[in-house]
Nucleic acid binder design. Structure first.
Lengths: 213, 213
DNA sequence: AAAATATAGATAAAAAAATATCGATACCCT
DNA sequence: AGGGTATCGATATTTTTTTATCTATATTTT
């Protein structure tokens, strides 16, 4: 069915936050960090952090902590973020634009090299230095440029069609921001981002909070 | 420390997807659904769905399935999405704009009634029928309007400051899209959305996929 | 009407994730 | 230098989540 299970998902999801904070600490001139410090920052228990970092293979120094540089490196290679991945974005609507405008991606080894859209009024435009191409050119261009990641931000009704074009163009990783569960070949991995999931969690938290007051 | 742990997180995160799909099915004239059908759609195992739905208190009919109307209702009340929540959005940058433009929120019981920003060139503008106010007016306005949810989309460096203003204005639920771990009183719940988490998961999936080829 | 198939619920089992404990190591302060 | 404190690593435990199994109920097919 395409999507093998990934283990340690909660840990993996925390990695980018570690990375961000570590880079910030390094900028502030620090060179070591303890899980206590990190835990305070992230509202977690130190033991959670220690277990997460164990995954990356780094070892810390008892009594001291971890070397920030080493950690940054280890997390990056754990996520395979050492080599920048090139991606294309499909759907230059408001969400697409927001993603094109997001500065943080370079920190995460992602480089969006072009956008595609079906709307003639958008084609040819330039958004944050990335050109918007006709979606019909997608298969040809991604094949030629050897891009293997696609960020899908089209309206739901065009999602499957757009995904098909990506697959045709040799893309094998799709970051899916639509509400559609895509049907893709086994070798293609899909990560679906459901924005409302966070809202659901917030709602439940708020509820529980109000009950305990 | 503010954030008690929430249980069944994965199940809660799947609820909005069930809701979306169920509404779509209802529109297509269906009135019952089995976990097998739902599972096929979501690339999950039927047992997962059954366990998730159990949380909402609905019971299905062996041999038949669940009544779609009942399910929709049960999920909504599980998430407390029966009564629309009013929210304000802080930071009318590209992400803020994208959220203001997102049509799906009404399905999820969320109504963004106004936006705030510090940039004079944005103040007074109207984005998708919502006015952008001076951020200094936030505490007064949210108090008066009795809004208790805030969506935080400002640049990282202003995040804490903006959060403080929200707290001052009586907001007790913050949906945090910044990269900052906010410091808020205990009664305020925060849900942080780390966009890069999904990218991290996708990277790891892609890696594993490539290893098994 | 009987047999085959599909389904949920209850209970049990397995797997994964979070948390605790304890010993060893380093740093800091007097 | 010595005592107190902070820290990590290894191991064990607990909790939570996921998955399996089995039974009863409904539907469909023959």
């Amino acid at each position: 069915m395409g999507n093998k299970k990934v283990q340690k998902l909660p840990s993996i999801r925390r990695m980018p936050t570690y990375l961000h904070k570590l880079k910030q600490m390094r900028k502030n001139g620090l060179d070591t960090v303890s899980t206590t410090i990190m835990a305070r920052y992230m509202n977690l228990e130190p033991i959670v952090i220690r277990k997460d970092l164990e995954l990356t293979g780094v070892t810390g120094q008892p009594g001291v902590g971890y070397k920030i540089d080493e950690l940054i490196d280890a997390i990056k290679s754990f996520l395979n973020w050492h080599n920048t991945a090139e991606a294309v974005l499909i759907g230059a609507g408001s969400l697409g634009r927001a993603l094109l405008g997001y500065e943080g991606f370079e920190d995460y080894g992602l480089n969006i090299i072009a956008a595609f859209d079906a709307d003639p009024s958008k084609i040819g435009a330039e958004i944050n230095e990335r050109e918007v191409f006709d979606i019909n050119r997608l298969p040809e261009m991604t094949t030629r440029l050897q891009v293997n990641m696609g960020i899908l931000c089209v309206p739901n009704e065009f999602a499957q069609e757009a995904a098909d074009m990506m697959v045709e163009g040799g893309i094998n990783a799709i970051w899916n921001f639509t509400n559609v569960s895509l049907d893709v070949p086994d070798h293609v991995v899909v990560q679906r981002e459901v924005i409302a999931s966070g809202l659901a969690v917030l709602s439940v938290k708020l509820n529980q909070q109000m009950l305990t007051d």
